[in-house]
Design a protein around this nucleic acid. Structure first.
Lengths: 229, 229
DNA sequence: TCACTAAATGAATGATGTTCATTTAGAATA
DNA sequence: TATTCTAAATGAACATCATTCATTTAGTGA
């Protein structure tokens, strides 16, 4: 790629106005830069100005490739969907495959919480990796003999649980601390305290969010499996 | 309340600077005004400026009563939590009570989607109605003989599903329309089409989101109930 | 009487997403 | 070959919004 200058990346000479000989931007470059920026600064740092700067471009240049910031988020979302592990649907029993898929799905988007509204509310049109993911899951359900007319409902139900659980991963440890109002909710406060004790016993890796996720996921898979039988 | 002027509300004379004889604002008034504003203009219309205007006050005056806009959202959230129906935990069997509670919870916050991150990520400290809600639910679980150390995990799992399902209520009807990429995911597209047929048969009130919610909730309650037994 | 605090106004600020006029490069067209 | 059109960049300007700060005024406690 580097044609003339050897390692002149540090000193960025300003590009003059007008269309450059070689296009600087593309959907792929924007997606990668956004992902990198999020990794470094979080979603708080993902602004159109910062994104443009990381690409050594004026902010307005981005709008030749995306319609809006939402569009950028959609690009990132679809890219990440490719990281969701659907391989188990090919060779594992249905219940186990769902569990592996759900864990992977939750883990990916727990680290990208602001994308949840994007996934949950925007049509999958023009999101190829997302569609590929759904196809693999659908195949897994069909192979397990799931009733055709309610496959999507079952997937949606599992996804709903996954999205909510992704939030829970990011909840602070003291989210259920009632503070001065504790005495007004004695049973709740006691239950919260017992939860804290239990998770202190276990390994730190297996935290509260994981316990709740596993409990709920196991229950839902069992419940759905019963419908199946 | 109206002391001197009979119906002079239309012409708002400007209040002069300085502390007024009678306080204009309070947490309660701010909460009610925010709720009313959301009802009229949605969360897009809930700006500090609009909120101030609806209270006939300068925007900066709000900051004498709340620390930030997040604070306003927290006030609204706690108020709405009082609308969640927990009455069934007092007199109905556990499974039925959970179902009634979950439906009510989802319905309330499906109409207030931007509050989901607030509920899911902010500590319950200083949210009295929220704490009261949790106390009632905890009592219901205890009365049903649920193992004490995992009551909170079970509630969190159900809540996660509820939050995700609230998003789903607001998803557009064509969210699974693959568009031109349809042929690349034939089984998924067919499943989506079958879902459309099924929901067309049923009453319009019972839509796709309700079907998925009921399926998932029934499964999770059954699965959790099996853990209980 | 005098400080102090609470609660209002009004002006200002900084961040952010977005638009628009302009410039330039290359491809298509006459 | 000259001309036109479109894509892709710059740079200036905007509108919206949350928030802060200096200032003013009312009541309260020392």
């Amino acid at each position: 790629m580097g044609l003339v200058e050897p390692a002149q990346k540090t000193v960025q000479e300003r590009r003059r106005a007008g269309r450059p000989a070689q296009a600087v931007l593309s959907s792929t470059r924007i997606t990668n830069a956004a992902l990198k920026l999020v990794g470094q600064t979080g979603y708080k740092g993902l602004t159109m100005a910062a994104l443009a700067k990381s690409l050594n471009v004026a902010p307005s240049a981005l709008y030749n490739h995306v319609h809006s910031k939402q569009d950028v988020l959609l690009l990132v979302e679809d890219h990440l969907m490719g990281r969701v592990d659907v391989s188990a649907f090919a060779d594992k029993p249905w219940a186990e495959a769902v569990s592996i898929w759900a864990h992977s799905y939750r883990d990916v988007f727990a680290a990208h919480l602001p994308l949840i509204p994007v996934i949950a509310l925007l049509p999958v049109t023009n999101a190829p990796k997302t569609i590929t993911m759904y196809e693999a899951v659908t195949n897994g359900f069909q192979a397990a003999g799931w009733p055709h007319e309610s496959i999507i409902d079952a997937i949606v139900a599992l996804e709903s649980f996954i999205y909510g659980s992704a939030y829970d991963v990011n909840a602070p440890l003291d989210i259920f601390d009632a503070g001065t109002l504790g005495p007004q909710a004695p049973n709740f406060s006691a239950a919260v305290a017992r939860r804290g004790l239990k998770s202190a016993e276990t390994t730190p890796a297996h935290n509260d969010a994981d316990a709740a996720f596993t409990l709920g996921l196991t229950a839902m898979i069992a419940g759905l499996g019963a419908t199946l039988a």
